[in-house]
Write a protein that binds this DNA or RNA. Structure first.
Length: 523
DNA sequence: ATAGGGTTAG
């Protein structure tokens, strides 16, 4: 018969165990309530008696509050790490979107002899997507080796991985390997089929699913949109038993992509009428349309809606608004929003610098860039430099442009992309240094695209470099839109025979020309 | 104490 022990019979060791246990429980309670500070205080006070569970809980608490550095410090100081400690750290790194550190920690885990389990793989696979996609089959073989392939979470992660690799066969294979499938598993198959362009298979899958939820419906709608079948998407959308903000936004986005603004706006109004509140995704999508097509009035109306909705502090939305205002020609409003932002990220700075460049405010663009990097310590990315370089183009600042072109690589390790070369070619071309532009095109590690040719020829046209343009003619003949530039140059020279010849080629080749061609040479 | 599906910005 078991009875409660009297305090007298408790030995020092069990006392120790009890106090450890209650400390651990208290820490867990604090963390569950979102109170990291008190948890940490208790943890520090009882540091020597804390067990691995207490350490792990404390790490989880820091990660939940985005205190990755504190989490890392604790992890490094831990006397004993178990698989949960490693998994928790991995998921923390995954949350902060740091694939390289994630990769390193995973390798470290293996080196330390800790065997990954069913919690490890979903985290690392999702973190590896877009960066280490190639490792998916290797991870798969490790998973098979450890006998984790039938796990539902591991399987779903693998399905996403193979979708990214466009491996239709393995996608189905992994799906079949999952023993007990739930609705998320089926949804992952839907996404996979849709992303790989198998709309029929996706529809068939949807039809034979044991149950579907609003995510399955939305996946189907979005999948049809991604595969450019807007009418099918709308058909499914109309059939939906209920809709939420995500499904409305997906459908609106579909129309925006089709440049069907009438339907997009009508749908937005129906959405409001159905008592679904738009969120920042919805507004962002609509603002993007306004920015792309200079719909200033609609843009300002959306701005009012955003102010009323209380979403105006959202970083993404402020950035979309800045972009809309600069592209609609109202740089002043753009700055008003920009200056009122509490936190700014790289994209926010990019949109204001790009806005200045577009408005010909080269000096302002460059001073904002200085503020961004030197005063605020925000790291520029490849888009920042496209904007900085195009500001230099507008200002005719050749030497400054060259300097930034070098700094980009040497100081920030950003690789030179075609767009950056296009800016430099444009910069040299406009400044009359056509020879330098030609040299740059020749030493560029890419096949020049239509933008590079356009920039180069615009430079030739501007400075009447007949000889250079003529020498380039053969090279650029795959691009029909280039011919207009030749017509101008030949015309200036009075070579009317060549003009007529070119014009004939333009007519022959320019069938189905698009907006892109009209905007040649502007970037 | 740790894990997976659908819509954002240049």
């Amino acid at each position: 018969m078991c009875s409660l022990r009297s305090p007298k019979t408790i030995s020092p060791t069990s006392f120790w165990q009890i106090s450890t246990l209650s400390t651990t429980n208290l820490i867990q309670d604090y963390i569950r309530d979102g109170n990291v500070n008190d948890a940490r205080k208790l943890f520090d006070e009882n540091l020597t008696s804390c067990n691995t569970i207490a350490w792990n809980s404390m790490i989880t608490g820091h990660i939940r509050h985005n205190q990755m550095q504190s989490a890392h410090d604790l992890f490094d100081r831990m006397p004993v790490r178990d698989v949960v400690s490693w998994n928790t750290m991995l998921s923390g790194l995954n949350k902060t979107k740091n694939p390289h550190k994630l990769h390193q920690l995973f390798l470290q885990m293996n080196r330390a002899g800790e065997r990954p389990n069913q919690f490890t793989f979903p985290t690392i696979i999702s973190g590896f997507l877009n960066t280490f996609d190639v490792l998916v089959p290797q991870l798969h073989s490790l998973i098979l080796h450890l006998g984790l392939h039938s796990n539902i979470f591991v399987g779903s992660a693998l399905m996403r991985g193979y979708t990214h690799l466009h491996d239709h066969y393995s996608l189905c294979h992994v799906f079949d390997d999952i023993l007990l499938k739930d609705i998320s598993t089926w949804n992952a198959l839907l996404v996979g089929y849709m992303d790989l362009g198998f709309t029929t298979e996706a529809q068939m899958t949807f039809n034979r699913m044991p149950e579907v939820n609003i995510i399955s419906w939305t996946t189907l709608v979005d999948g049809y949109i991604k595969n450019k079948k807007i009418n099918q998407a709308r058909h499914v959308f109309d059939e939906m038993p209920q809709k939420n903000v995500v499904s409305w936004t997906a459908m609106i986005k579909g129309y925006v992509q089709q440049e069907n603004y009438t339907n997009a706006i009508q749908l937005f109004i129906s959405m409001l009428n159905s008592n679904t509140s738009p969120n920042h995704f919805t507004f962002s999508t609509l603002l993007d349309a306004c920015a792309g097509f200079s719909m200033f009035l609609l843009g300002t109306q959306l701005h009012s809606c955003i102010l009323k909705s209380g979403l105006s502090q959202e970083l993404v939305l402020s950035t979309s608004l800045i972009d809309m205002y600069t592209k609609c020609g109202d740089i002043k409003s753009a700055f008003t929003i920009f200056d009122s932002m509490e936190t700014k990220n790289t994209v926010s700075w990019n949109s204001i610098i790009g806005g200045c460049a577009r408005h010909g405010l080269a000096t302002r663009a460059l001073s904002e860039f200085k503020k961004m990097t030197d005063e605020n310590g925000v790291k520029p990315d490849h888009v920042t430099y496209i904007n900085v370089l195009s500001a230099c183009v507008h200002g005719g600042l050749v030497e400054e442009g060259e300097w930034h072109f070098r700094e980009m690589v040497e100081r920030y390790g950003i690789g030179k992309e075609m767009k950056h070369y296009t800016c430099m070619v444009d910069l040299y071309g406009k400044a009359g240094e056509v020879d330098k532009a030609v040299r740059l095109v020749k030493e560029m590690p890419f096949e020049p695209d239509v933008g590079v040719w356009g920039a180069l020829l615009a430079g030739c046209g501007l400075h009447s470099c007949y000889e250079v343009a003529n020498g380039l003619e053969k090279l650029g003949q795959n691009y029909s839109s280039i011919y207009n530039m030749f017509i101008k140059i030949h015309g200036e020279k009075g070579s009317w025979g060549r003009v007529v010849e070119m014009r004939d080629r333009v007519i022959k080749k320019q069938k189905g020309s698009s907006r892109v061609e009209l905007s040649l040479g502007e970037s």
